[in-house]
């Protein structure tokens, strides 16, 4: 198929004729743009202080039918999960991302809650995972795949519960991605931006929740980030 590749690139170059100087300039322009990516425009809406960002995130997420609860600390997560499941008449059985940060939540404090750690299986009804960041602009969660954060946890179960630390809520998408880029260099296999539960308008343009992904999305915003070990 390298024959097709050569043919396509050759035709593109015929469509985009450049002199030798222009070719060098074009290559330099492309190299520069790719080497130093920079935001084009950050909407003013999200450029607020920490409290403002948390407030905007909460409002925007609620506007697209996510439920949002604010918790003081990670230890409050298991009780909030148990209460939520009771309120929606769901079984007290969850699958939790095997992330050491979520272990700090001390699930054993809720003896009635059956907790499995790992990836979602087709029959799992409730998945709990951790977002890397939140984005205030549109109430969006940014999840990154990793061995301790399997992607399907947020897509396969009918109810998705996502924990995000208030300190990690940025104003705009680009600000979250800049931190991701600084931390990881190249992106992980999957970066999922999630804004509310799954929905469809494909039947007579009437919005229905839970088309393929979760029918319900609970976001737990944790005010205090856990202290770092090292």
């Amino acid at each position: 198929m390298s024959e097709a590749r050569a043919a396509i690139l050759a035709r593109l170059r015929r469509s985009l004729p450049r002199s030798a100087d222009e070719q060098a300039a074009a290559e330099a322009t492309v190299h520069e743009r790719l080497a130093a990516p920079a935001p084009n425009l950050l909407p003013a809406r999200g450029q607020l202080d920490r409290d403002g960002r948390v407030r905007l995130f909460t409002d925007m997420a609620r506007a697209v039918a996510a439920e949002v609860e604010l918790l003081d600390e990670l230890e409050a997560v298991p009780a909030a999960v148990a209460t939520y499941l009771r309120r929606h008449n769901l079984p007290q059985r969850i699958v939790v991302a095997p992330d050491p940060l979520l272990d700090l939540a001390r699930w054993e404090g809720q003896p009635l809650l059956r907790v499995r750690r790992g990836d979602a299986e087709p029959d799992d009804a409730v998945g709990v995972t951790l977002a890397s960041t939140g984005i205030a602009e549109t109430g969006t969660l940014l999840l990154t795949s990793a061995p301790e954060r399997p992607t399907l946890l947020a897509f396969l179960p009918e109810t998705s519960i996502v924990v995000v630390f208030a300190d990690e809520i940025d104003g705009a998408y680009e600000q979250s991605w800049a931190r991701l880029r600084a931390a990881l260099g190249t992106p992980p296999r999957s970066v999922n931006l999630i804004t509310g539960p799954s929905r469809t308008g494909d039947i007579a343009q009437q919005i229905e929740l839970g088309a393929h992904g979760p029918r319900r999305l609970l976001v737990l915003v944790v005010d205090r980030s856990p202290p770092l070990d090292d």
Partner: peptide, 18 residues
Amino acid sequence: EFSAYTTFVTGPKRPGDL
């Protein structure tokens, strides 16, 4: 304001991914 799911996929499964 934003579609419900926007996903960036980069390459296949990485070592250790579930």
